[in-house]
Design a protein around this nucleic acid. Structure first.
Length: 285
DNA sequence: CAGGTC
DNA sequence: CCTGG
């Protein structure tokens, strides 16, 4: 049959930091728990005393989807050991030692970051929620209201720009629509992305309407598991600038190069630590 | 003014 | 470029 609950023993897993760090936008904190949707499943997660307890709305036979999403088998120590031994990096790790990278669905991740342009995390969450409620499949949850899956490529592609704007997408509406239609028109093959190297996959993603280097890199890192990819946005630029170059002002190109050479094989992981640390603890301007 | 792109 | 915090 399967179970409605399952407990996973974890070490160094900061669920709060991980689910609120701006890599995924479907999680809502309710008291000590987090509720969210992964693919077509609603789930409630709770971390206590080294255990993550998951609660599902329907019996689950195989929890591999959740273990994969949360990357429970990832060897964090091994990744942390590759980080540069400098003060900013060590401080960032020390402030959230259990921060993790999730492994998300390609399309949902891609769509979410297309929507992220000049938006704060709260607003991105809002747009994703509106879209899901309006165009996603209803799915069972343990709350009074049903949850909603993220809308499929097909459903989004069939929308009009105007209706998408009603989900507060603004000028992002044509970008999301364009990307969905590009995929349906087979301009790129999402299924094939996992078989490509990160630079090949980046080139593919950037063929989509509304997808530039920043969004492509976020998808590579958060959906593709290319942990060496270091997305550079204005916040991480400011963080690098302040933490590593307090005296001079490197160009965007120089910062890009620094990001690509300084942080090693898990640069994307390092980026997540720097980003979250900076967002919570630093005053950036 | 805002976590980007055309 | 949209629009809201």
């Amino acid at each position: 049959m399967g179970d409605l609950r399952k407990t996973f023993h974890v070490r160094d897993y900061d669920l709060d930091a991980t689910l609120s760090s701006g890599q995924a936008f479907r999680w809502q904190q309710l008291g000590q728990a987090w509720e969210g949707v992964i693919g077509g499943r609603w789930v409630r997660l709770r971390l206590s005393k080294g255990d993550i307890t998951a609660e599902a709305a329907k019996p689950v036979r195989d929890w591999a989807w959740l273990e994969h999403y949360l990357q429970l088998h990832f060897n964090l120590d091994q990744a942390l050991a590759t980080f540069p031994d400098d003060e900013p990096m060590q401080n960032a790790v020390a402030s959230f030692p259990g921060l993790r990278l999730l492994r998300q669905d390609y399309w949902e991740c891609l769509a979410s970051f297309i929507l992220s342009a000049t938006k704060q995390i709260v607003q991105i969450r809002q747009m994703v929620m509106l879209l899901s409620k309006r165009y996603g499949e209803p799915i069972a949850s343990n709350d009074d209201d049903p949850a909603f899956a993220f809308p499929t490529i097909k459903v989004i592609a069939a929308c009009g720009e105007k209706e998408l704007r009603e989900c507060k997408l603004g000028f992002r509406a044509p970008n999301l629509l364009g990307a969905a239609r590009d995929i349906l028109d087979k301009k790129i093959d999402l299924q094939r992305l996992p078989t490509l190297t990160s630079s090949e996959a980046r080139k593919e993603l950037m063929k989509l309407h509304g997808v530039g280097p920043k969004i492509a890199d976020c998808v590579l890192l958060f959906a593709g598991g290319h942990q060496e990819v270091f997305p550079v946005d204005v916040w991480i630029e400011r963080a690098l600038q302040q933490l590593y170059f307090p005296k001079r002002r490197p160009s965007a190109k120089q910062l890009r190069k620094f990001a690509d050479t300084h942080f090693g094989p898990y640069a994307g992981f390092a980026q997540q630590y720097l980003f979250h640390h900076a967002r919570v603890h630093l005053k950036l301007k």
